[in-house]
């Protein structure tokens, strides 16, 4: 399984992932500055914020998680703020495999999906056997989506085929569940690596590519997300197949969420503007969006004490 890195130039198997285009960080940052100078006001702001709320994967991934905590979060997912008219639900709740069953039961047929992390989250340092078992546990308990982590150590060693094979194996174990592949970009360090890892994940069968576990800093950033969106764009134009994107961790304000949507809108277009193809992995973002949408509805900001913390 563990093919060691081979510098031999004729090793075509390892060469096939070296076709990823290079990335210029300065250029990426300039493009981000352009996105962030967009002025999103009035109707486009309200629309954008509702969309962002509808794209959230409400997440709890802590050692101290309990059934009670998960149950409360599930209610919040379906009822972000009942005092404000016309709010959508969030897209999904994201939990550890052991809480999939309870989340599934709480969410019922509300349409809110259950996502489960798997594959020895967050480090991914375990055997394939355990990772597959982990995945199957989540899927058998009813997870609609599986968020796996790649083996960053193997990636940085240059064992791209190992990373590819692992993702492919987990994809198979997922069955009908959609697979999100977490690259943990904070550990990949360069944008060139992010691009390469994105290409590997997409080719290995990811339905979504995702930036981070939320356990490593920096988590999601706009530059990293843009590089991943470019990878998705290239794949789409080559094959016609759409891949989803999920920035996760660190996105906590409405303003930043709108900036991500502008980036998505101008990079992949309106086709991606739904929670089928874009998610925010976030826990505190929902309340900030509720605050802003409440302000739009009531004409003034109101105390955060009116917004439930779960």
């Amino acid at each position: 399984m563990n093919q060691k890195k081979n510098y031999f130039y004729g090793d075509l198997q390892n060469m096939k992932f070296d076709n990823s285009p290079t990335v210029d960080q300065v250029g990426i940052e300039e493009r981000i500055a352009r996105f962030n100078s967009r002025s999103i006001k009035k109707q486009s702001k309200i629309q954008g914020l509702k969309l962002a709320l509808n794209m959230i994967d409400l997440t709890t991934l802590e050692g101290k998680d309990t059934e009670g905590k998960v149950r409360q979060m599930c209610y919040k997912a379906m009822h972000p703020a009942d005092n404000i008219k016309g709010l959508p639900t969030v897209a999904a709740v994201c939990v550890y495999p052991t809480y999939v069953k309870i989340a599934k039961k709480e969410l019922g047929n509300s349409g809110v999906k259950v996502a489960s992390v798997a594959t020895a989250f967050p480090s991914g340092n375990s055997t394939l056997e355990i990772k597959i078992t982990d995945t199957k546990l989540a899927v058998n308990d009813g997870a609609d989506e599986v968020d796996m982590v790649i083996s960053r150590g193997e990636f940085l060693e240059g064992n791209y085929n190992f990373v590819f094979d692992e993702i492919a194996a987990i994809k198979e174990a997922c069955g009908k569940a959609r697979l999100k592949v977490i690259l943990e970009t904070g550990e990949l360090c360069t944008l060139d690596n992010v691009r390469k890892a994105s290409d590997i994940a997409i080719l290995a069968g990811a339905d979504f590519i995702k930036t981070s576990t939320g356990k490593i800093q920096p988590a999601a950033t706009m530059p990293v997300t843009l590089v991943m969106l470019h990878a998705i764009n290239d794949h789409y134009h080559k094959t016609g197949k759409m891949i989803g994107m999920k920035p996760a961790g660190g996105i906590s304000t409405s303003k930043v969420a709108l900036q991500y949507l502008v980036m998505l809108h101008e990079t992949l277009g309106n086709k991606w503007l739904s929670n089928e193809w874009f998610r925010f992995g976030a826990s505190s973002l929902a309340n900030d969006i509720i605050l802003q949408l409440g302000k739009e509805q009531m004409g003034a900001y109101y105390s955060k004490d009116y917004i439930s913390n779960d």
Binding site: Q47, P88, G111, V112, S274
Partner: peptide
């Protein structure tokens, strides 16, 4: 309990920036 309100992409096929003069 509120009914299924996961309106996904229906409300949102074309996002345009409102004028910001």
């Amino acid at each position: 309990m509120k009914k299924e309100e996961n309106i996904t992409n229906e409300f949102f096929t074309d996002w345009k920036y409102a004028p910001a003069p």
